[in-house]
Amino acid sequence: MHKVMTRTAQRHSASRPPTRRDTRRPGGGPSRAQGGAGPSRTAPAARQPAAVPQPRPTDLFADRLLLVLSGQRPVHAMLRHTAGRAYDDLVRLAEHGPLRVRGPRPVVRDIGYCQPRPGAIEAFARVGTGDRLRAMAFRLELGRDHRWRCTAIELGGTRTERNPDDD
């Protein structure tokens, strides 16, 4: 039989760490020294953090399309973000590598858009590579699952030629 010896700590105020007196506690509640672990009725209400602004879908899609057309991302990265013939158009555009350049990477300089009807956005982006500007236009439509998908894309004002056998 083993005998366990225990010592009880003496409760001197000098041996105990100081209690926290910070009023910025999560939940705005009183410190443990004041009793109670949760917020009290007299404590001020905790402030809700300001809502973080979400980027517009046009900004997100312009960046995604630019990454694919410049060769920084594979075309299949846009597969779940496209609908209809837009993926086929994107594949044709990416094959030619219109934004693949040596030197500075292309960047989106400006984005504009209009809403022809609720749930549809037609957007354009000015893409700059060094001192050269190109135009990119695309259409976004809101699906039944409340996600935006690209349904059309054009680059540089020329529409990609479709093969009549694809119809």
Rank of each mutant, 00 (worst) to 15 (best):
L142C: 04
S15Y: 10
F61M: 13
P18H: 13
A135I: 08
P44A: 06
V108A: 03
R41V: 00
G36I: 00
Q10C: 11
A43T: 07
R73C: 00
A152W: 09
P118A: 11
I153F: 03
I121N: 00
S31E: 14
D110A: 10
A45G: 06
Q10M: 10
R16Y: 07
E95Y: 11
R134T: 15
D131K: 04
R24H: 14
Y87W: 09
A14P: 01
Q115M: 15
V91A: 13
R105Y: 08
E122W: 04
T23R: 11
G119A: 11
F138Y: 04
A125M: 01
H76N: 10
P74V: 02
R25T: 05
A33P: 01
V68F: 02
E95K: 12
R105E: 12
R25S: 06
T8P: 00
R100F: 01
H146Q: 15
R92L: 06
G103M: 06
L79N: 07
S40C: 06
V107F: 08
A83F: 04
G119C: 10
A125P: 02
G128W: 04
R132F: 15
P53K: 03
G97I: 04
G143S: 14
V52R: 13
A9Y: 12
A123C: 11
D63R: 05
R102L: 12
F138I: 00
V91M: 12
G29F: 00
G35K: 09
R20C: 15
D145K: 08
R117S: 13
Y113G: 05
Y87E: 01
V101W: 06
H76P: 03
P98F: 00
P55L: 10
P17Q: 06
S31W: 08
R144D: 14
R105G: 07
V75F: 02
R80E: 15
L79K: 12
L90G: 00
R139W: 12
E141D: 13
P26W: 06
P98N: 10
A9W: 09
V75Y: 03
D110K: 05
P30H: 14
L142Q: 10
R134P: 04
H12E: 11
Q48L: 11
S40D: 15
A137S: 14
Q34K: 13
D145I: 04
R80L: 15
R144T: 09
Q72Y: 08
A152L: 10
R147P: 02
